[in-house]
């Protein structure tokens, strides 16, 4: 197991393996997403209270889940990078930030578009919405630190530290609807009792969640490949790779 991890973590192997995996993951993502879109936009019945407008849930909720999930992955990878000096963990952390920021942005925008017709406002400063907005700023902070520091190792360390500190925001976001009185309603699926959503709506919701997760892994691999290639630009295997390409 450890030997496999080590082998996978070696840049040339990672580059080769990720190049092979990314398209498969991408196709799996597309398939799941088409299924989820069909289920959510066509097959699922309208909601008893919100009518057709609730269909935004199928992109809003998975985006919000991903915004939290990716942050935890990013902070975890940063911690691994800081403790064990693992280069690939650094790469995972860097490559995660833009995807995470994208999903956070999507959660905010789709939520806003959902809030206007249902709540009556695009935005309120309640605890849930505010803490999600802070999450977006945290992602910006990580990305900013990365691009501002010239030396990649130093940049990774600084941004990683920042990301780890920002983890405190994650439980705040999740429990905000329970700790404080918010306009945002409580959790539907991720509560301890049975999900309070009808099966015909739950299935496309989960399909979309799986699709977004696959999307994240696909893009993560693609970004990580660029990062690996740039970091290893002077290594023998990269030179050989480029040379072989040029000679074709």
């Amino acid at each position: 197991m450890w030997a496999f991890l080590h082998r996978f973590a070696s840049p040339p192997h990672f580059y080769r393996l990720s190049g092979r995996m990314a398209p498969w993951l991408g196709w799996a993502c597309l398939g799941t997403m088409l299924g989820g879109l069909y289920g959510g936009l066509v097959a699922a019945p309208p909601d008893y209270q919100q009518g057709e407008s609730y269909r935004i849930i199928f992109v809003h909720v998975p985006s919000a889940w991903m915004s939290l999930f990716i942050y935890v992955v990013m902070a975890g990878a940063s911690a691994v990078a800081l403790v064990w000096r693992m280069k690939l963990a650094e790469v995972v952390a860097v490559a995660s930030a833009p995807v995470g920021a994208s999903f956070t942005f999507l959660a905010l925008v789709t939520g806003s578009l959902w809030g206007k017709p249902m709540w009556g406002t695009y935005w309120v400063w309640d605890a849930r919405l505010t803490s999600e907005l802070i999450l977006l700023f945290l992602y910006f902070g990580v990305i900013g630190l990365h691009s501002a520091i010239e030396d990649r190792r130093t940049a990774s360390r600084a941004a990683g530290l920042f990301a780890i500190i920002g983890v405190v925001n994650i439980p705040i976001i999740h429990f905000s609807v329970e700790w404080w009185s918010t306009l945002h309603q409580g959790p539907t699926v991720t509560k301890l009792s049975a999900p309070s959503i009808h099966l015909s709506m739950l299935v496309p919701l989960l399909l979309m969640a799986v699709a977004f997760k696959l999307f994240y892994v696909t893009v993560l691999l693609m970004r990580a490949r660029c990062e690996v290639l740039e970091r290893e630009r002077n290594a023998g295997w990269v030179r050989a790779l480029i040379a072989r390409e040029g000679s074709e």
């Binding site: 019945p45 909601d47 008893y48 249902m118 309120v124 409580g186 539907t188 309070s196 009808h198």
Partner: peptide, 12 residues
């Protein structure tokens, strides 16, 4: 006046 909806989703 803002509406606060619940976390239940189901067909009519």
């Amino acid at each position: 006046v803002l509406a606060k909806h619940d976390e239940n989703y189901m067909p009519p």
